[in-house]
Design a protein around this nucleic acid. Structure first.
Length: 851
RNA sequence: GCCCGCGUGGUGGAAUGGUAGACACAGGGGACUUAAAAUCCCUAGGCUUCGGCCAUGCCGGUUCGAGUCCGGCCGCGGGCACCA
């Protein structure tokens, strides 16, 4: 066997796998299927270490499942619509389409050398007309089922990207991509009725046993179920049509602490009052506030007394003033509240500012009523004493009191208990070019009409320019012109395109039949769905995964997915990031200048540039181009090979945690692979009739390695699987056993390494006479007889401290073990004649002597 | 502010309530070499009077036995937020 040269073997085996078609997914009713999917990448043009880690994890699972006899689907595609392509067109000229497809080709070229077990015949990009045409067909089906609607809505307008953002895409009042302060605008928008599924999306989370608890919790919080009381105040002095004011509260037990009612500036009543210039001015003042983080932090609670009064539901003689207040949101609850300053800090601040009464409703269990310096807001599970209660016991928990208050309201007919959700409908309209056109036509006589399916896809025009901001579809000379599918008259196309989250909400289903003439093929989705293992970043814990869960339900309703697939991802794994130290110097003005790791010489004491300039080392953070703490996977592959990169990203850190990339770690991985290679050579050169004393030991170690590595992979403890492989390699290197046992051990080592380092495994496998390709060879099974030891070493504790150990036959009865332990020399010395009070023998585990 | 999660050697990390520190990185020593690189071997939590003692963020508790379970602090990270 020659020198370990990854550049030679990796290409060779990739070609061999291609030729053998090992990774082409086939429907095979005779075998169980396994669908493993990693979140598909955005085609930025360059792969990074995060991709390598993500796809290696999926590859380890896929390759293991192939070896275990499953029919495996492991596809790859591109989340290819979106603004970066348009931004590139604006900055550099060219066309988003060329930029995107060019990037896809580049990235595919960078991914192939990783040796991933991907069925490339299923590859697609979401910007392929073949894909987005099917998405348009589903949109039309969803319209028919009432899952799509338009409404005039106040939306988040991103003034830089000239587009609307979903509430979820506004982070700290800024656009999640552009970072620009978001403004409020009113536009007619397209929405998906995700709120129809609020309850189902929430309760079904309980069934997702193989999802991280954290993700389920984040989704539950996002959906935001609350139980409260909805009731109507009778108004005094309100305009016609506003005789009643509906409010919602989660704390109906505090009703007797009410000191005012407040409505949102966007409330219909506020609009009705806008004829009063003072109201109009106040409402305008509230709107100006916007939602930027800075303003939220500094925003003062402001209000305007409308002069209208409402009657308290429990006492018609008690009237409360109605204020318009800037901290009331129109799209939560009813857009109107009653304020209870004693038990809500916002209401407290508001009441303090405007001199409204502050009365406690309850006090701590042992306390007396006293003036409040701030709102008293204990946990609802805590018991408190009600001084202004009206339902339930005087001393009860908040939860009990809320339930009692709702019951009281329902019995007396002034309100009813309702369940509300925070989740809002999904606004999908984007005023952008590079997205899936919404397949709808506006006709002067017929109104909004869906395009005929035979006219799909509604293709994006190629002749567009990006020299002015705004939507190129809107200013295209002819694209909008069309005929009404209903009446045939001249009409205009919708120029909004869809949020790119729509594209990624069903790609997992499309992979089951990527070229079908319908969105999915019934036989294919039935065979392949669900995704058995989904792997991706925690950053998609809420949006992408929630939208996908909704979309699967919508696809079921429109006949594109079977009922079993409404939760499309059986198991989810969220991997950590790849991090790296940051190297920084400062320029003449003291501004930071960052340096690439390859330009820095790292030593124990610190770091310098190649010219000796000292460099400040900043602790590891996510690899990012701006901090230049990036390592290009292509450079690593060129230097060490893909197997080294794959081995390193899977070793050391648990996969759900961040892993720090270090040059020494990568070198160590390469050295180890070289050691395995050399070990293989040495074993290959053993004479066929060589014998040694370690046959039994090595057979047992091999069985143990099979067991531990398999378990490590199956529980996503890849770092532990790799630790086992290191240990087994060390054992094998030191063993002197007969040639067949040595060969069996190294072949097993190769097979166990193959999910992580498939190329070197293949070379070793072949060299050691393995049958066929290692990639498709069956996964080894440990002989159970070899996993049990005849003897066991038991530590002996005296009063909980380890003092000695004995080795006894595994099945020895506890009474015998006790005798041997007490006869042990070290034990006798430590006991020093003290009487033994108690002796605990845990079979196979430990002995504890208590004195 | 609320809700999660996490604190173990110089570093990344192992450890069904049962020998804390597996495996690896960095370090130290040695072999080989004219020398270096590479490779191989040994060593490696701290302290020690060489008997041991102290060690899993801190303080208590449960237990024969706690890194692991419970309570309270401290620190770090993530998520959510004028959400009624």
């Amino acid at each position: 066997m020659s020198r370990y040269d990854p550049a030679v073997i990796e290409k060779k085996w990739q070609d061999a796998w291609d030729q053998a078609g090992c990774f082409t997914a086939r429907r095979d009713p005779a075998r169980p299927k396994y669908y493993v999917l990693e979140m598909f990448p955005y085609p930025s043009g360059r792969i990074h270490m995060g991709h390598v880690r993500n796809y290696t994890m999926g590859d380890v699972v896929a390759r293991t499942k192939i070896a275990q006899g499953y029919s495996v689907l492991h596809p790859m595609g591109w989340d290819a619509f979106g603004m970066p392509a348009e931004n590139a067109a604006m900055e550099r000229g060219g066309h988003p389409k060329e930029w995107t497809y060019g990037n896809i080709a580049d990235m595919r070229d960078q991914m192939k050398p990783l040796g991933l077990s991907i069925d490339w015949s299923r590859e697609f990009a979401t910007c392929d007309p073949e894909y987005y045409g099917q998405q348009q067909a589903m949109f039309i089906d969803m319209m028919e089922k009432g899952l799509v609607y338009r409404k005039n809505a106040v939306v988040n307008w991103d003034p830089v990207d000239m587009t609307v953002l979903a509430n979820e895409q506004v982070i700290d009042g800024k656009g999640w991509r552009s970072g620009a302060a978001v403004e409020r605008r009113e536009l007619t928008q397209w929405f998906f009725k995700i709120s129809d599924y609020s309850e189902d999306l929430l309760t079904a989370l309980d069934g997702l046993k193989d999802w991280p608890e954290k993700v389920r919790l984040m989704q539950a919080n996002w959906i935001g179920q609350s139980r409260g009381l909805q009731f109507a105040f009778e108004t005094v002095g309100a305009p016609a049509g506003f005789e009643r004011l509906e409010v919602y509260t989660t704390r109906p037990d505090t009703l007797l602490g009410a000191s005012f009612a407040a409505i949102s500036p966007d409330h219909p009543l506020a609009k009705a009052l806008e004829s009063d210039p003072k109201v109009a001015a106040f409402v305008a003042e509230c709107r100006k506030g916007g939602t930027s983080a800075e303003e939220i932090e500094t925003a003062e609670k402001i209000g305007f007394d409308t002069g209208i009064r409402v009657k308290h539901p429990l006492d018609p003689n008690w009237e409360l003033p109605v204020w318009i207040a800037n901290f009331i949101l129109m799209d939560y609850g009813t857009g109107a509240i009653f304020g209870c300053p004693g038990h809500d800090q916002r209401d407290f601040d508001f009441a303090t500012k405007y001199g409204l009464p502050i009365k406690p409703v309850f006090v701590a269990e042992g306390a007396d009523e006293a003036p409040l310096a701030e709102a008293f807001v204990p946990m609802k599970s805590e018991r408190v004493r009600y001084v202004r209660g009206f339902a339930g016991d005087a001393v009860q928990t908040g939860d009990q009191a809320v339930a009692a208050a709702i019951a009281h309201a329902e019995t007396n007919g002034y309100g009813q208990g309702v369940t509300k959700y925070r989740l809002r409908d999904w606004g999908i309209s984007r005023q952008r070019y590079w997205g899936c056109p919404i397949p709808v036509i506006h006709c002067a006589t017929c109104g909004v009409v869906a395009e005929k399916k035979e006219n799909l896809p509604v293709r994006l025009p190629d002749d567009v320019t990006f020299d002015v901001p705004g939507n190129p579809l809107d200013r295209h000379p002819t694209w909008r012109d069309c005929t009404c599918p209903k009446c045939g008259a001249k009409a205009r196309r919708e120029t909004d395109t869809m949020d790119t989250f729509v594209d990624s909400s069903w790609y997992y289903a499309r992979f089951t039949s990527p070229h079908a003439a319908t969105p999915t093929d019934a036989a294919d989705v039935d065979y392949w769905m669900n995704v058995d293992q989904y792997i991706g970043g925690i950053e998609h814990a809420i949006l992408h995964l929630l939208y996908s869960r909704f979309f699967a339900r919508a696809m079921h309703k429109t006949g594109h997915l079977p009922a079993k697939a409404i939760e499309p991802f059986n198991a989810l794994f969220t991997q950590g990031m790849v991090t790296h130290e940051i190297y920084m110097t400062r320029d003449g003005n003291g501004r930071p200048v960052y340096h690439l790791p390859e330009d820095v010489i790292r030593s124990e004491s610190g770091a310098t540039l190649k010219d000796g300039t000292p460099v400040e080392v900043i602790p590891s953070a996510k690899m990012s181009k701006s901090k230049k703490n990036v390592v290009d996977p292509m450079n690593i592959i060129a230097q060490f090979g893909a197997d080294t990169a794959r081995w390193f990203v899977m070793s050391d850190s648990p996969p759900e945690r961040d892993v720090e990339w270090t040059a020494s770690g990568a070198e160590a991985a390469f050295k180890h692979l070289t050691r395995v290679w050399n070990l293989c050579s040495r074993i290959g050169e053993l004479p066929a009739d060589h014998t040694g004393p370690d046959d039994d030991m090595l057979r047992k170690a091999t069985a143990r390695a099979i067991h531990d590595v398999t378990q490590g992979i199956e529980t996503f403890a890849f770092n532990k699987a790799i630790a086992t492989l290191y240990a087994f390699t060390n054992t094998l290197a030191k063993a002197d056993a007969s040639t067949p046992v040595m060969k069996e051990a190294i072949r097993t080592l190769a097979k166990l390494m193959s999910p992580m380092t498939p190329h070197i495994a293949e070379s070793i496998w072949t060299y050691q006479g393995g049958d066929g390709l290692c990639a498709t060879a069956p996964w080894p099974k440990a002989d159970p007889a070899l996993l049990v030891d005849d003897t066991v070493t038991l530590p002996i504790q005296i009063n909980g401290k380890r003092r000695a150990e004995i080795t006894v036959p595994k099945e020895m009865p506890a009474s015998e073990v006790e005798k041997i332990a007490l006869a042990d020399e070290a034990v006798i010395r430590f006991l020093a004649g003290q009487p033994v009070k108690k002796i605990i023998v845990v079979p196979g585990r430990i002995i504890n002597v208590v004195v």
